[in-house]
Structure formats: structure tokens, C-alpha cells
Amino acid sequence: MTTEPTREDVILEIDDIHTYYGAIHALKGVSLNVRAGEIVTLIGANGAGKTTTLRSINGLNQPRDGRIRFQGRDITSVPSHQVVKMGIAQSPEGRKLFPRMSVRENLEMGAFQRSDRKNLREDLDRVYTLFPRLSERKNQKAGTLSGGEQQMVAIGRALMARPKLLLLDEPSMGLAPIFVEKIFEIVREINEQGTPILLVEQNALMALETASRGYVMETGRIALADEAKALRQNEQVRKTYLGEGA
């Protein structure tokens, strides 16, 4: 079903990576790619290896085997601060804010690796436009925000790096349904402004509605890969991840 992408289109290409946590073989040959301008989602159960895949990309847990290419360059064993500098920013699982820094300081941390720091003001404004709520709370300590607001900070912080690829790890986790809607709306908006996104989600329904393509992970492997629309129709996906009875 999936059309083979042309080489120029692909900005992130993961080729058969194997990643370990100590002796545990967490990723057993994962391959996927993200093309310019699209939202790709990675869904699957807890422990399937979704977060590990992201950690492999950004250098926090480098794969022992396989190749990761970003914009044609091999980044398989590039340290994480370099990966960020090259343009891959992420909103990590569990948000991972700096709780005693203010919202504004958190956002500024997102731009840490940028060399053109003079446009900081402009980028802050962009984030505040995207999340007016954060503008109201810019001097508040991040640790005192609600879950939804913290998620906004996490996404905003990643945007401050002016990423060429945005990795989002479970942006809907622990949020009230109304916030989930809002977050996905913003994910779409960020994408429409031109940033490709790799979205890891447990909320498969929302993720497949938002993304153009999807990968389904099971125990360290890609079990299914298809257009998001097709995956929504897939019987197995419906049963396992969308919670629909047979």
C-alpha cells in the first residue's frame, strides 16, 4: 500500500536498528522513515519500544546495530547535544520540565543549542501565540502548572529549538479529554507551519486521525506500517488499539 518515498523527500530514515538497555534487547530491527512535511505516528502498547525508538534517534540511547540518517547524514552515534543542534528537538515522555524554572526559562532552555540566539524574542512570541495560556503564566514555576499546561511548555520548549524534525512522546498522556483535543489541534497547527513530526502515542485513535502515516510497534518490532487511514480500517488495529469489539 505505502508508496516508496523518493530519496529527497525522506528527512529521517531509520534502518534496522537494534537498541539495548543493558542486556535487554529492546529494539529488534526497527525501520521507519519520516518525509518532509508529514506527521508520522508510532503507536503500540506499553513497552513495545516506542520511547526507545525516540531515544535512539536523539542519541540518549544509541543503537548497537543499524543506521539512522537525518537529512542524509548518519547520526547513529552522534551524541545527543549534537543531534539537537542538527535540528531534532523533542518533547520527552512525562514532559520532563525543569520544575523550578519559570515557564519562560524553560522555553529559553529549548533554544540552548541554537547558534542564532538573537531571534529568541521572536520565537518566544511564536510559542506564546500558539499557547496564549503560557504567556499569562510565563513567570510561574513550571512545576506548579497543570498537566495540560506542562505539556504545552514541553512542546513549546521543543519548538524553541526551531526544529527541522519534532519528536513528540505521548503528548496526550495523563491529560483531560478536552486538553487532549487541544494538544492534537496544536500538533496539527505546528505541522501546517512546516515542521515534520514523529508522534509517539498510546491514544491510537487520536494519533491516527492526526497523522498521515502510522507504524504499529509490538515488542521491539514494527508490526504494521501503512497510511493512517488504512490503519484505522485495519481489523487487528481496531481490535487491539482502538478498543473496538470484534
Partner: peptide
């Protein structure tokens, strides 16, 4: 971990 993810070496 968050610091590393922000690109702090």
C-alpha cells in the same frame, strides 16, 4: 535527562 534532551552536553 531533560537537560540532555535540550542539547546540554
Amino acid at each position: 535527562t531533560a537537560a540532555a534532551a535540550m542539547g546540554v552536553p
